[in-house]
């Protein structure tokens, strides 16, 4: 029985890693298209979100099956509970990748030469947070999870800066309001991804220590 249990856990971990890296890749593609004229990646991100949804469902079903069949306790229980929650956070991050791709597409179709700000540093920071949160989960590393909370504050600041820049630009180029607003929304979506990564970090800390830290780090 214990052997079978370990096999199920290993399979679950593998499936989750696949989902995690897929979502990470989608976020990266959605953001990088901002600076290239390559539309193929954007269309792929927008069209194939269903793959992520399907994987999320599959992982959730595996988690439920393990709960029902093995009734894990203590750290085993905390792992499954954390994974169920993180799984849905990751799926939401996939949704944000789609939204970002749609905004970026809009901007590029309406002339991104007017665009007043560079999203790369923010996107990089957010992608780093996402990667760190998934690494923290896989390595059961609560210290790494704690570092994510600090980065989240930086991302919030970047979103506020984007707001100020776009607001100023709207006055100068009111006829480009559509692109500018979509640009602000990209910053907003990135900031939401960072929030989700922070939620993942909270779950990792729960999983490792059994402490529920929701919101306490703010």
């Amino acid at each position: 029985m214990h052997h079978n249990y370990q096999k199920q856990i290993d399979k679950l971990r593998e499936n989750f890693l696949t989902l995690g890296s897929l979502v990470e890749d989608r976020v990266r593609k959605a953001c990088s298209a901002f600076n290239s004229s390559d539309q193929a990646d954007l269309d792929m991100v927008i069209r194939s979100d269903y793959e992520i949804d399907e994987m999320e469902v599959e992982i959730e079903e595996e988690c439920l099956k393990i709960l029902a069949l093995y009734q894990p306790v203590a750290k085993d229980l905390r792992y499954i509970i954390a994974l169920i929650k993180i799984n849905s956070e990751v799926e939401r991050i996939g949704d944000y990748a789609v939204k970002i791709a749609m905004r970026v597409k809009f901007i590029s179709e309406h002339g991104n030469q007017v665009f007043p700000m560079d999203y790369r540093p923010m996107a990089e920071k957010v992608i780093a947070m996402l990667k760190m949160s998934l690494d923290a989960l896989v390595d059961k590393d609560a210290e790494l999870a704690h570092q994510i909370f600090l980065l989240d504050d930086e991302v919030d600041t970047m979103r506020d800066q984007a707001y100020d820049i776009i607001k100023a630009q709207l006055r100068k180029q009111p006829d480009h309001a559509g692109s500018l607003l979509n640009g602000y929304l990209v910053a907003r979506h990135l900031e939401r991804i960072a929030d989700r990564a922070t939620n993942i970090a909270e779950e990792v800390i729960y999983m490792v220590h059994g402490d529920i830290v929701r919101g306490e780090h703010n």
């Binding site: 029985m1 214990h2 249990y5 894990p72 306790v73 203590a74 750290k75 085993d76 229980l77 905390r78 220590h209 059994g210």
Partner: peptide, 17 residues
């Protein structure tokens, strides 16, 4: 105790290890 035991021996026993 069944979610966050404090002693290694408790955890080993309840998790079947």
């Amino acid at each position: 105790l069944f979610t966050t035991p404090r002693h290694q021996l408790t955890e080993d026993y309840i998790t079947g290890r």
